[in-house]
């Protein structure tokens, strides 16, 4: 169902695309230079993240329960990925959360941030925005006042190179 009109439009589009291609080739120099404007490199594995986790647990058994880690499966903006961490069990005067850490396994600095709570907080529910250098596992650890260490872990896919680190 090709009409004359649409065929003309197609030719115009092709010509335009060729011109754009030429521009892109000419602009390649500056673009390549810009790609090297950061020394940020992702970690090659989770070794540093594991070390941070072990340091936080300090020998305690790590339980994969009681802690929720909410983040999108696909981070459409790697420069600001919303991450929510909250303890799902009731926070009482006898059982409260004193500390939470968030680890982005493959970031140049895997420790993303640390939170400390007090008995006066009466809650353990925080949300921050992270920048992630590539797709990676994200984990959170929480220390309860009775000595338990809770853990949650999620994988996230992000578009590479949009990190802003």
């Amino acid at each position: 169902m090709t009409s004359f009109g649409s065929d003309m439009r197609r030719r115009d589009l092709l010509a335009g695309a060729a011109a754009l291609g030429g521009l892109a080739a000419a602009g390649l120099g500056p673009a390549a230079a810009q790609a090297q404007s950061t020394t940020a490199m992702p970690q090659i594995d989770s070794a540093e993240a594991d070390r941070l986790a072990a340091e936080f647990a300090a020998g305690a058994e790590v339980l994969s329960q009681g802690l929720a880690l909410d983040l999108p499966a696909l981070g459409d903006n790697p420069a600001a990925v919303p991450v929510r961490v909250h303890v799902t069990e009731p926070i009482t005067d006898a059982s409260w959360c004193s500390e939470i850490i968030v680890i982005a396994d493959l970031n140049p600095g895997p420790l993303a941030c640390r939170f400390r709570f007090t008995a006066a907080t009466g809650s353990a529910d925080v949300t921050v925005r992270l920048r992630l250098i590539r797709s990676m596992p994200v984990r959170a650890y929480a220390r309860m006042e009775d000595g338990r260490v809770l853990m949650a872990r999620r994988d996230i896919t992000v578009a590479p190179g949009g990190c802003g680190l």
């Binding site: 970031n107 939170f115 992270l130 920048r131």
Partner: peptide, 12 residues
């Protein structure tokens, strides 16, 4: 109530 220690990974 809360102490937060941000590191490099926190967004602008």
């Amino acid at each position: 109530l809360l102490e937060w220690t941000p590191e490099m990974a926190i967004s602008q």
